[in-house]
Amino acid sequence: MVSLWNYNRHGMQKMNKILKEAVISVLLFCTVFYATLQVDWLRVLHLTPTIVGDKLSEWTWEMMSSNIKEVEDDEVRLPIDTLMREMCVANGIDTASINIVVSKTSEVNAFATVGKHLVVYTGLIKKMDNEAQLCAVIGHEVAHLQLGHIQSGIRRQALISVIMILVSGNGSGQLSEIIGDMISNSITRTKENDADAQSARYLHAMHLNPLEMANALEKLDSYGVFSFLSDHDDSKKRADRIRNMNFSDNGPYRQVLSPGTWERLQRSCK
C-alpha cells in the first residue's frame, strides 16, 4: 500500500516536472514570437502585402503583351484617354488604377486582365456606332476590374503558373493564351450581369445614354465580346435586363468627343 502510494507520488512528481518544463517551453516560444512581432518586417524588408499577386500580374502582363500591337497614333490614343478619364472622374474611379491599351487587331474584342490592364482592339472601336457604345464596352471591363472579378481569377492563375513551372520548367509561350482563357472562364454569368449593370451606371453618371449598353450587347452578340459563355439567347436577356433598370433623369445626354474626333478615331482604326 505504501509502495503504491510512493509510486504514485513519484509519478506525480514526474508529471509536475513535465508540466513545468512544458509551460516554460511554451512561454519561451511565445516570448520569441512576441519579440519578432514587434518589428514591422514589411517596412524593414521593403515588401508590400500584395507583392506575390503584383509580381504574378506583372509576369502575366509581360506574357500577354507580346500578342498586343499597341497603337501609338494620337488620333486613336487621345480620344480613348479622354473617354477613359471622363468615365473615371464621373464615377470617382482612380485614373491611375486603370491602364488602357489599344491594340491594332482586326478582331472585335476588349478585355480586362490581371493587374490594372484593359485592352481594346481596333476592330471593336471600328464596329461601334457611337462613343456611348464604346464607353459601354470599356465600362463593362472597368467594372470587372473595379468589382474585383479579375483579382479572384489571379488565384487560379497562380495555381496554373506553379503547375506550368513544375511541368515545363518555364511558364512562357502559347501558355499565356490558355491562361487568358482560364481567367475569362472564371468570370461567371452573375459577374457578367453585375458588370453590365455597373457599366450602364457609369454611362448614366457620365451623362451618356445608359441604354447604349443594351444596344452594344445586341450589336456584339455574334462576336462573343462580353462573355466566353455567350449564346444568342443570353445577349438578348442581358440587353433586356439593362432596359429594365431604372435611371433617374439627369438632363440631356451630352457628347464627350466632337463628331470630327470620333470620325477620325474610327477612320484610324480601319
Binding site: 520569441v32 519578432t36 512581432l37 508590400t48 499577386g53
Partner: peptide
C-alpha cells in the same frame, strides 16, 4: 496561401517564419 494569393504577406507571417526557423 500567400503564394496562391488567398491571403496577403504580412509582418506576422515573417515573425512566425523567423520564430519557426529559430526553433
Amino acid at each position: 496561401r500567400i503564394l496562391f494569393c488567398f491571403t496577403e504577406l504580412s509582418s506576422v507571417y515573417i515573425a512566425y517564419f523567423i520564430t519557426v526557423n529559430l526553433y
